[in-house]
Design a protein around this nucleic acid. Structure first.
Lengths: 95, 95
DNA sequence: AGTGTTTACGGCGACCGTAAATATG
DNA sequence: CATATTTACGGTCGCCGTAAACACT
């Protein structure tokens, strides 16, 4: 499992559409489809239901979505927590 | 940033020694040293202080350690949350 | 000189993108 | 037949391991 897989999963879950998610992520559909499949295999349970109109979250997917968001949020928090003052950040603290 | 980098970082932080961490992770020292360096570069701040006896957590490293552990714990929680009953798990729940 | 970390180099595996195939209405 | 996902194939990037070099006591 990788952080990218989690990001892919969240985007697809939010869009309900792999093609739409691929545009949002600036990636093509095949990698997304594949990574989601790998993720499902690794977790041992399907996350989406494939429909001819897109994809739809299953119960496991809905549960996993909550956790995936928390992981990504925590990663961002970790980065923020050690962000040096000299980094190119929002100019909210002039001194 | 990758989950492996976080795992490496936590192991090194806990051991205070790259060589020791490498044994614990079943990896050789160079990859660990490199990944930590990449991580530091990506974060824009050093995490460890290199000493002739090993490494030592800096303040940023100490802060990051807390978050890294939370990320990894949350990843594990995510996996557990969707773990199927039929998976090959520890035989602690006969039914 | 000994311990520990770092850099150099070669090899392997993973991921992405384009193109073709499959499935549903 | 149109839309959306999936599989096949080729190329590129990243990570790991061994070996050599560097730093400090």
């Amino acid at each position: 499992m990788s952080l990218n897989q989690l990001r892919y999963f969240v985007a697809i879950a939010e869009e309900g559409h792999i093609g739409r998610a691929s545009q949002r992520l600036f990636v093509s559909q095949p990698p997304l489809s594949r990574q989601i499949r790998y993720l499902e295999e690794e977790l041992g349970t399907p996350l989406f239901e494939r429909t001819p109109r897109g994809v739809r979250l299953l119960e496991a997917g809905d549960t996993f979505l909550i956790h995936a968001r928390r992981v990504l949020a925590e990663v961002d928090a970790a980065i923020e927590a050690v962000r040096p003052p000299r980094a190119a950040g929002p100019p909210s603290e002039p001194d």
